[in-house]
Design a protein around this nucleic acid. Sequence first.
DNA 1: GGATGTGAATGCATTCACAGCA
DNA 2: TGCTGTGAATGCATTCACATCC
Lengths: 221, 221
Amino acid sequence: MTPPRSEVPEPAVRRLSLYLRQLEALKLKQVTTISSRRLADSLDLTDAQVRKDLAYFGQFGRPGVGYEVIPLITRLRQILGTDRVIRTILIGAGNLGSALASYHRFATKGFEMVGVFDSDPARNGEQMGHLTVQPMAQLNRAVRDSGARLAIMAVPADAAQSVADQLVKAGVRGILNFAPVRVTTPDDVTVHDIDMSAELEQLSFRVNMTDVSDNTRSKAV
Amino acid sequence: MTPPRSEVPEPAVRRLSLYLRQLEALKLKQVTTISSRRLADSLDLTDAQVRKDLAYFGQFGRPGVGYEVIPLITRLRQILGTDRVIRTILIGAGNLGSALASYHRFATKGFEMVGVFDSDPARNGEQMGHLTVQPMAQLNRAVRDSGARLAIMAVPADAAQSVADQLVKAGVRGILNFAPVRVTTPDDVTVHDIDMSAELEQLSFRVNMTDVSDNTRSKAV
DNA sequence: GGATGTGAATGCATTCACAGCA
DNA sequence: TGCTGTGAATGCATTCACATCC
């Protein structure tokens, strides 16, 4: 199932998550049906874009009516693969790691945290949510036993590649990487990077831009 | 200064942060000069892309030689606006918020955290790093006094719009939003979203895709 | 010889605009 | 009439390829 008709643009897939988020909000508000126009407006997109994105995956709108909220949610979850529980492990029990371990939203989105690991022996045994921090040596067995397919890496930059290698060896299929380095993996292991500092830099750039075009800022070196 | 010649593609600006990160690593390794080719290879990009991205902002390479690491770092920081300290406040002192408050890398990138705020009175007064959690009522004055131009929002989805409104009123120019909702702001206030669950969903999608094309997975509904 | 900077060509993603259906 | 689904047109970003310079 979930046969993307031809090739799906990557930005379209990214927007699927947005649609799903919005639809879940609509469901809570008891809205049963939504048009591409109104869905688009609420997300600052165009109606054509919404329709095209969804159409990559099939036809689930009704002309003259729109999209039914609940069936569309179901379908989007199927497409994203979150209609089943996705077991996920976390590497790195530092500040960020422990925040992520208790980020409840992951669970509501279909991700179940099944293990936390840290190379620092001082942290082994520590309790994090309902989980106990384990040493890296346990990684292989834990991944196999739990069937975890995704991992979140919240480790220092200089540890990231080595951790990624271990994750690959353990059989993980996707890595959400918070470390500010690119890691190399085989083609069948997907990595997504979240670089929080880089995001702040982008903001800084934009803020400067608007300042400059406003002529608000004098021309310093 | 920093006059982007004509219009700069947004993806190019995003890559600037990557280049800067890589160049800083090269500087530590005492590398003085780098070609677009080698910089590109280390980031999985093409040499032409690196050259074009940089060329949007001027000509700082030397034909036959490449780019000088240190001057290019300086220039990129100017472009991104992080050559000066950027004062930043944090809203939300929950799990994620406190992890961000102690995320040391922000400081090394030029961002100085100058205040932490939370609407929950129970958290006011709590110590977070070198800062004390303040009530939202202090926001206006704190932003004005500190000159903070950026804010990081680590608040629940249902609080996000209201917090954003307060930030705008206080004079913040850019918001890094971790809450899983779109917030509306005036045109001169930039918002960047980080939706961690959405990133996991993307991973999930990709992992399913590779599984499917491998015919590893049977066709369940 | 080795590398940059950049117009021209290509390749994608978005938007348009409309046929067709409820 | 209202709205979807989708080819065709447009608009951007990436890549090519080469003149230019160290």
